[in-house]
Design a protein around this nucleic acid. Structure first.
Lengths: 146, 146
DNA sequence: TTTAAACTCTATTACATTTATAGAGATAGT
DNA sequence: ACTATCTCTATAAATGTAATAGAGTTTAAA
């Protein structure tokens, strides 16, 4: 399961990506997306440090997207907040850890199976950018009206 | 990430599926698979209650597979120990929960994206039975020798 | 019938992580 | 100066995970 932090981050980003030129206040995003304000502060700060968002302090300030919505994908956001995408630590590159219960990792079929799942998942998440998500939402809305 | 409980369960099952007719002692599985004995006790009990393993008490007793290795797949084991396979609670059937930050779920592209990931993952896990894992391990071992 | 070998069950502990909040600090526009 | 805004540190509360302890129950065999 994704952490709430990560899910909140994605929703906040999708919200912002609908008006990629705009500046957004923490307070407004918090209300529009039903995310606890103080919690959201920490989230936006992380996104800022990661280079996905930019910010301007002081009166008239706020947060804004530093990249176009097509340049931010779900894999990056999930990794930022929840770390490895793989279900087992021996099936990752950046977050690799050996499994104690594994006698010979090279020959471990459990690792192999979850590596397959991981690779497919990473591909799918990478293929879902903020732009894609907004397009998808519009399509779903069209379909619903009919 | 899978819980250790779940990962231990899978390794224990794969171990047992190599001799599907045998009876296994907790102590032996614990040693062979490097799983803390007391923890493994609880795991095997869960697998017993779920109908995957059977047990015989008393002297000469032990645990054994109640089904053939081709009839136990990873999706079932993961669900048993870790619940939903989906990354968000709104993208599951059995473990469904609404997301507070979601204004209109029918039109939520985040849910849609993770539903796609979930469905693909479930298919892959279902396609990996204990039998498959053992065959795979043999293949990996062959490949290594060359 | 006693003993020993097994699984069964309940309880509890220790630890880590997640979620959330409080409050003071820094910055910038008016 | 004043106010709106993001920034930062600390911490509390809740939850969940991993692991262990110890007593209970069942069965085979001496």
């Amino acid at each position: 399961m994704l952490s709430k932090k990560c899910k909140y981050a994605i929703h906040a980003l999708v919200h912002m990506a609908k008006q990629p030129e705009e500046k957004f206040l923490i307070k407004d995003i918090s209300e529009k997306c039903s995310i606890p304000k103080k919690f959201l502060e920490a989230i936006l700060l992380d996104l800022n440090r990661a280079g996905i968002l930019g910010s301007k302090q002081g009166k008239g300030g706020g947060y804004f997207l530093r990249r176009t919505p097509s340049e931010v994908n779900l894999a990056e956001v999930v990794r930022l907040f929840d770390g490895a995408i793989a279900a087992v630590p021996c099936a990752t590159y950046k977050f690799y850890e050996r499994c104690v219960e594994c006698v010979d990792e090279e020959v471990c079929s459990v690792r192999d199976a979850f590596l397959q799942v991981r690779n497919a998942t990473v591909e799918m998440l990478k293929a879902n950018t903020l732009e894609d998500l907004i397009k998808k939402e519009n399509k779903l809305r069209m379909r619903k009206k009919k």
